[in-house]
Design a protein around this nucleic acid. Structure first.
Lengths: 210, 210
DNA sequence: CCTACCGATCGGTAGG
DNA sequence: CCTACCGATCGGTAGG
């Protein structure tokens, strides 16, 4: 279902086709335009003709690069998910006090969100209305489970509050992180690092000073 | 644009038509089914025929109650927005220390979210792809401005951290609150009051205990 | 025999 | 609240 192969796919799970080491330029720009349109108008509300029009090509030209519309969605969602799973696979996410590992995963997630903003934005809008969306939701829930386990471990250490269930703390924490897609813009006043600092300070220590 | 009138509208801004004091039962159930479908499948991806099928009537029967599909969206979004504005209009939101007023508005917003979950969920998915959505976004931004002003006043009082811009603190705070629509369910383990307590404790004091 | 497309149209379904 | 439709557009594919 996920590993369905179409001509010339050799690269990692994001499915790009870098022929002889060069980046697959036209699929890449197609994907960028598609993700932009999916975010702006919604996936189902975006027609292949609209994508074609934005790209200045015909609809048939798009079908040269992808076999179906939902392949565009799958490529985009996998890119976001690959980024998030790369964070929890980093050594710093696997050793040391749980509170430090949690901080590392939050900072890494903010970095993925700011670096791959359109892809993560699209991921957070997915509701499970197709097999592609269901597969993405499954991977996302797996990521959430890792974070919840970290929060639970940090609470057991005594470094995270235990008057609120760990699952609720994890959800509120990632609700805060994920809400960045609603307003963070790379060309805005705040740098990606400043945003990460703001999220960490506010979420970990709270907004109240008194 | 917003006040466009269609036959027999006499009630407040939610636009229901309670004839002779009796609640408009069929519009109410139509709205409930429509909002449910819009959340599940997306507004544009939901066809009027699908709504008719869910209701066990024909598509034309729906057009007896609303003149256009987007009227269903407008009614739903106005209900969520009316609830939120009712909170900031409460006396406790207008007097006393800013930090207390902010806490009151957050608690009230969580209450509206839990009480009118489907309507608020739909509101938070709106992206401005039509005049109805743009009007809702305008009202929502007005609400956000009130909250940001409260955060700024609380920071000026010295009761909210000032190492992060007030606008960012406000966005993160309401990112946390709004993320409740992603997982809170009225029939779940946590009561609405317990959720409000969890949000207040986590957002105001932080998740870290050390 | 390959790639990167084109103009035209398929069977169905959208909102109204 | 129904049957019977409309102009248009949907995702996907034909031959060249």
């Amino acid at each position: 279902m996920v590993g369905k192969v179409y001509p010339a796919v050799r690269s990692p799970s994001h499915g790009l086709t870098p022929r002889r080491g060069r980046p697959g330029h036209s699929l890449e720009s197609l994907l960028a335009v598609a993700v932009h349109a999916f975010i702006e108008r919604g996936y189902e509300a975006t027609s292949m003709d609209e994508l074609a029009s934005r790209l200045g090509v015909t609809k048939s030209a798009i079908y040269h690069h992808v076999p179906r519309k939902d392949e565009l969605l799958r490529l985009a969602l996998d890119r976001a998910l690959d980024g998030l799973f790369a964070v929890v696979a980093e050594p710093a996410a696997g050793s040391g006090p749980a509170i430090d590992r949690l901080e590392h995963v939050v900072r890494g997630s903010v970095r993925v969100l700011t670096d791959e903003l359109p892809f993560v934005t699209l991921l957070l809008r997915v509701r499970g209305n197709s097999t592609v969306e269901l597969a993405a939701l499954r991977r996302r829930r797996e990521f959430d489970r890792v974070v919840t386990d970290l929060v639970r471990a940090a609470a057991a250490e005594g470094s995270v509050r235990d008057d609120v269930p760990a699952g609720v703390v994890a959800r509120l924490l990632f609700g805060t992180v994920n809400s960045l897609t609603e307003w963070y813009r790379p060309d805005g006043r705040l740098s990606a690092d400043a945003v990460a600092d703001a999220v960490l300070a506010t979420a970990f220590s709270g907004l109240r000073t008194t």
